[in-house]
Amino acid sequence: MPDRPRYMISVAAELAGMHPQTLRAYEEKGLVRPARTPGGTRLYSENDIERLRLIQTLTTKLGLNLAGVEHVLRLEDELRRLRARMERLEAELRQEIHDTHRQYRREVVLYRPPKPPATQR
């Protein structure tokens, strides 16, 4: 389950190749939202780690500042939501088509031409 919170900040920072303070700064700016234990400890999921790696790529390899990163992440999140919605709608449409076809099969009556009248002798 990639969205299950499991890594404390030190482990998450190591996995993402960043300093823990960088993760705190990214959280403060709203770029990443780790879960919290009842005691307040940050817990990062695999999805959070991937997001941190994306942030690192955007800043180091593409040279974006954090405002640009924020914009890209917002677009990525919107794209993910739209894809999920599209998949839901496609599944609903497939089910509707399936139900309609099944209904047609129940209503279809085979045509049998009438038998010609018997000839009288």
Rank of each mutant, 00 (worst) to 15 (best):
V109K: 08
E96Y: 06
P113K: 05
L89K: 10
R6Y: 04
L58V: 06
A25L: 15
I9R: 03
K115N: 09
R6A: 12
Q56L: 11
L15M: 10
A13Y: 01
R94Q: 11
T100K: 10
P20Y: 01
E14F: 03
R42D: 06
T100A: 14
R51K: 11
R83N: 13
Y104P: 01
L79V: 15
L23H: 02
D99V: 00
P113V: 00
R6P: 01
A118H: 11
E28Q: 13
V11E: 08
R42M: 05
R42P: 00
R88H: 11
I49V: 14
R88E: 11
E107Y: 10
A84K: 10
A67T: 15
A118E: 15
T100R: 12
L73Y: 08
L93K: 13
H101V: 09
E78N: 13
H101G: 11
Y26C: 02
E92I: 01
T41K: 14
G39V: 07
A13H: 02
V109D: 06
R53G: 06
R74P: 03
T57L: 13
A13E: 04
D77V: 09
I9V: 09
P114S: 06
A13N: 01
Q103M: 14
A12H: 03
A25M: 12
G30Y: 05
E90Q: 13
E28W: 00
M1K: 10
G17E: 05
H71F: 14
